[in-house]
């Protein structure tokens, strides 16, 4: 699937495939194809190097973008899923379990999106229910007991807004996770792979290291939601997307994230394998680095990192003890 802003490339690509389809295998044609290919590549590179925030949102939500299942296949050599929150049920929007990345064994948790409509309905489009957040917390506590680092993959439009979710305490489940994750005595590596949707994302997002893929977004509210409240017009989402500062570059500058994993040219959806390589390398390095820190230092470092976030007037950051 091609995105609206890639139209110019699509036309060139059609031209190219027409040329390639020609049965004459003459030299002139071949060189034309090569030239065209080069042109398309450099155009795509340029286009993706300079995406507007709203275009980035579209890439982050691209239906062919890798989802958690793909990362489990492509980045981890083993995954033993662990089900249920031991209280209500087994949420499908947030999953987790033991996983191996290279030689490192970890506890993997993450939002699960689907690829087809059916799959997406089954996993609620990656929107966690309270039982999902509580399952994630159970697994993080288990990680603490087994002294395993936690790796958290974030990709959600937000926590599920439903009657049952409210009745079972969506707010409490997220709040509890924020409180408990702050004091977790094992390394926590967080990666926003697609959509970092508000509290639903943060609910499994309190890490020693918080990373983003280069075309992922992370926001307090969806651009559409913000536009309909502050602009009273949902179609102003592109304006809201720009105003909210939701791209990886902007968040790195604000100090909210610690690093960006570069996606292949044209976005992660165009080259899954290269994306997995980059993700595997970066996460492995972060785990190796954090492994050297004591439990106490890990807690202190994570605590300070979040304590320092925010910008206000009339006072410099207070010295936190």
């Amino acid at each position: 699937m091609d995105l609206e802003f890639e139209k110019s490339l699509v036309e060139l690509e059609q031209q190219m495939s027409e040329l390639e389809g020609g049965s004459d295998n003459n030299q002139q044609l071949n060189s034309q194809v090569t030239q065209l290919k080069r042109k398309i590549n450099s155009m795509r590179k340029k286009l993706y190097a300079d995406l507007t925030p709203w275009q980035t949102v579209q890439v982050a939500r691209h239906p062919e973008r890798p989802v958690l299942r793909d990362y489990i296949e492509g980045v981890f050599s083993e995954f033993i899923e662990l089900h249920g929150d031991r209280a209500f049920g087994d949420d499908k929007g947030i999953i987790g379990g033991f996983a191996s990345i290279g030689r490192q064994r970890v506890m993997l948790i993450g939002h699960q999106k689907g690829k087809t409509t059916e799959e997406n309905i089954a996993c609620n489009f990656g929107m966690g229910n309270p039982d999902g957040y509580r399952k994630a917390l159970r697994l993080m506590k288990l990680a603490e007991k087994y002294n395993l680092p936690v790796v958290s993959f974030i990709d959600t439009p937000g926590a599920y807004p439903g009657l049952e979710a409210e009745a079972r305490g969506q707010a409490e489940a997220i709040a509890r996770n924020l409180t408990e994750m702050a004091r977790l005595e094992v390394p926590v590596v967080v990666l926003v792979t697609g959509e970092g949707g508000s509290g639903g994302a943060l609910g499994i997002g309190v890490g020693n290291v918080v990373l983003m893929l280069s075309h992922a977004v992370y926001s307090v509210i969806s651009p559409e939601g913000c536009a309909s409240i502050l602009w009273r017009d949902g179609s102003k989402a592109p304006e809201a997307a720009a105003a909210l500062k939701i791209t990886a570059d902007a968040l790195l500058e604000l100090g909210v994230i610690d690093g960006i994993i570069e996606e292949p040219v044209g976005g992660a959806h165009r080259d899954h394998a290269a994306t997995f390589d980059a993700v595997k390398t970066e996460i492995s390095q972060q785990l190796a680095r954090l492994k050297k820190m004591s439990a106490r230092r890990l807690v202190e470092q994570r605590f300070k990192k979040f304590a320092m976030l925010g910008k206000f007037d009339n006072r410099k950051y207070a010295v936190h003890r």
Partner: peptide, 26 residues
């Protein structure tokens, strides 16, 4: 809820305040 005008920094106050409460619990 969170103040949209400060974007992600408002969201992060959820984690920051809970971290402060976590220390009281401890």
């Amino acid at each position: 809820g969170a103040r949209m005008h400060e974007g992600i920094l408002s969201l992060m106050q959820m984690a920051k305040t809970c971290a402060a409460i976590a220390r009281l619990n401890e």
